[in-house]
Amino acid sequence: MAYKIVTSQCTACSACEPECPNNAIREKDGTFIIKPEKCTECIGYFDEPQCVAVCPVDDTCIIDGVYPRYQAA
């Protein structure tokens, strides 16, 4: 049920933070991270995950395989 940020790729541009409808994103140690328990993959809010849509670096906001997909939950 969550996206995660590949911190080695994150530029800390902060673009994703205000776009998240669930306030799941915050800054930590110079990069940004997603709180998995808050992330809904934007389901119920937008057609596409906002962090993915706004992030300037490809493949930086990605599905975290550790958690089941939100719909399945």
Partner: peptide, 16 residues
């Protein structure tokens, strides 16, 4: 103002 809302081909925001 670190965030941007578009991508330009002459800009690499992976660094700066």
């Amino acid at each position: 103002a670190p965030a941007c809302n578009i991508q330009c081909n002459y800009c690499n925001r992976k660094y700066d």
